[in-house]
Nucleic acid binder design. Structure first.
Lengths: 225, 225
DNA sequence: GGGAGATAAATCGTATACGATTATTTTTAC
DNA sequence: GTAAAAATAATCGTATACGATTTATCTCCC
């Protein structure tokens, strides 16, 4: 006897997928009527899903205008990534790593090394972190982490991360696994924190670049006058 | 130029108030039609608010039956309070306590000492913690804490906390303030953690009591047969 | 060509309607 | 009297309708 499908849950998954694929542009209103036609359902469950994503802070509701993916500020990026790092360290410290779990980490690490498209790499990186906290007994903590990671995924996929970035990540993941294998949790935690700080630095760099690109566009249009 | 009122936000506040006042019984479906009549609005924004509270995990949606306040399990209580304690310690470690903030803490502590009804004490205790993290620069962290505390408030108000509990809290708050005044953050953090563990122990005790009370009721009805 | 104002079109947020499901009440059988 | 089945009422989740607001387009004037 299977659980009934609630449309808002399906819509929420679909929306998250669209967001993660970068198919929703920052600042642009998500069009309810278009979504309704695409999904062939009414706007009611769509709105319910959207308001849930608003509650998650993945989306922002602009009254009378609709729902948008908000721009990520430098400050918010910093706060998000620092919090993720801190929480994941807590989760790792609360986890017992048996052989099976280490094996899964190793497999995902191998997969990350063998994968070459940005989206596949991102997915693999995400999986690595999911496996890392998979056996954490504190489900509240893992739920929060899951939510926070959902929030940053969109921005990461947007910044078509390059090869040197993944080489760096690769090395850090490797070191994390090794520390875990040696039951050296403090070291694993330390490298894990560094790992997230690496991501933060990269995202911040891209945000600054993006900002100065926008500034140049504005400057050019001023010169046109 | 003020922001337009979005009904679901007002409804959400109202629902949270009802929940915190214990006016919604655990496990019983929240009646949409009754709420619609009470608030004199349609069920649409009510459902939007409810689905947001579902997303917050304050409520649970039971398909085709509606929304309920879920029962708090011992495990979940432990995970919630441990996570709150850990996060609040992080927030305190990231906060600079100036004279003004310490003064506010002192005032709230005095208020807690002078207040005698359970609901006023709970409100004061909550305020104390809010002031404690008020100047934390990491707004992501404070948002998460705010959400987590919302989740446990209902259960705390339900367990009409007694005088010895508040005496204990009082002492711990006093010690936290003193440690902060001495710029001794590690000690403040330690006592803060103990503070939340005290609350956890009390809530767990009440949950166990409640459980055995329910067991007795079931046993009596079996004997009747 | 650009800005301002007016108008039309599109869209949002909420209300209402309705079929499906659950809860409650009534009826039937033992 | 009790349990099970049937009938009825209540409610949920979704679709549709509609007034309010925003966006896009058009026209006029400088």
């Amino acid at each position: 006897m299977s659980k009934p499908t609630i449309l808002r849950d399906s819509v929420k998954d679909h929306l998250l997928h669209l967001i993660r694929q970068g198919e929703i542009e920052i600042g642009k209103t998500i069009n309810l009527a278009a979504l309704s036609r695409t999904l062939n359902i009414s706007v009611t469950p769509i709105r319910e899903a959207l308001t849930q994503l608003e509650q998650s802070r993945i989306l922002k509701a602009v009254p009378n205008r609709g729902f948008i993916v908000p721009k990520l500020s430098l400050t918010e990026a910093e706060n998000l990534y620092r919090t993720i790092a801190d929480l994941e360290v807590l989760a790792v410290e609360g986890t017992v790593y048996d052989e099976q779990l280490v094996k899964e980490l190793r497999n995902e690490q191998l997969h990350l090394q063998q994968t070459h498209t940005p989206s596949a790499r991102l997915a693999s990186r995400v999986n690595f972190h999911r496996i890392l906290i998979k056996n954490c007994p504190n489900t509240i903590l893992t739920e929060i982490l899951h939510d926070l990671e959902s929030r940053v995924l969109f921005y990461e996929q947007m910044f078509v991360l390059d090869a040197s970035f993944y080489e760096h990540i690769d090395n850090q993941n490797e070191a994390i696994i090794r520390a875990i294998e040696e039951d050296n949790v403090p070291t694993a935690a330390l490298i894990l924190n560094m790992n997230w700080m690496t991501v933060l630095e990269y995202v911040q760099k891209q945000l600054v670049l993006q900002q100065s690109t926008n500034y140049e566009v504005v400057s050019l249009s001023v010169l046109k006058q």
